[in-house]
Amino acid sequence: MTIRQATDAAVAAPTVSGRKRSVWEWIFQARELSLIVVIVALIVVTTVTQPQYLFSDGGVRDLLRTPALYIALAVGEAIVIISRNIDLSVGSVLGLTAYFCGNMFHTMPAVPIPVVVLLSLIFGAILGSVNGLLVAFLRVPALVITLGTLYSYRGISVLWIGGNFIRPDWVPKEFKEFSLTTFLGVPKLLIVALIVVLIAAWFMSSRRTGRDLYAIGSNPEAAVLYGMRTKWLALIPFVISGTLAGLAGVIYVSIYATGDSKVGTGFELQAIAAAVVGGVAVIGGSGRIGGVALGAFFLATLTTALPVLSIPSLWQQAVVGVLIVGAITLDRVFFLIRQRRARKELSA
């Protein structure tokens, strides 16, 4: 039998160093950068073709106001996806909270506006926590649970609202005006959305709980071995997502001051699309909130720009589809390249 002699000299042998990324890789990896370029290009092209897109009354305002709703929705969805789950019910939650909010203005006019807004957010949070509790503690896949609540929340909407709808005269004038006013030229709604983005980005990148959400999305088994409280962690994103869908519902009422039992139908797909285009991996564990906000902004801009460019609405959906597929394919390609390089490094 040979006994291998371990000497101290052999101990300090192999090293691993950070590998420099190529410029191209960096540009494509910085999803935020490419999104900003695409958004600016889209606005410029549209404005050159049809100047009234930007230079009509309220053109800039509309351009900057509409994305607020999508940003709120997409940020919540992104946090759920990062933790390796999905929330399909956000559109239905938006619809329910929008009517909750409008109805409260109507039936309880004495209640101050901020209280109504706060209660709507709490209502959204409760709807979201139902999802979260079912997913976290019954261990049913989120896809199934939130598909179920997508339908049941919508069903509650239809039962509750029936043929009724939010009437513009229900909504207080100040609240409608809030969506029209600006602060330093920026619509206040967008400022609200930006505050949400900043808080969410800070929470996700700089707080332990936020990082833990990335961790369970990156490797759930490892999260258990690290001693993280994975069940409670799985609940948090759904509560956030519900709250932000509630905020989106409130924003909806502020912008449109109307809406029936179908408000928000299909919005969950837009939210997922925004998250994916914004750089969130659908298998969880990666993606930045800033990118998601830009993704939402981009999709919202696209939906307003394409009709102005007189591109038929049939094509609009196709364009969005191509973008999603393109974004995912690009991610995958870079992942494979990285993996291959890592393997080469290993065998070298």
Binding site: R211, Y214, N219, A222, G285
Partner: peptide
């Protein structure tokens, strides 16, 4: 088989 978070 160490269990790390690949994205970290």
């Amino acid at each position: 088989e160490p269990t790390l978070f690949p994205d970290f």
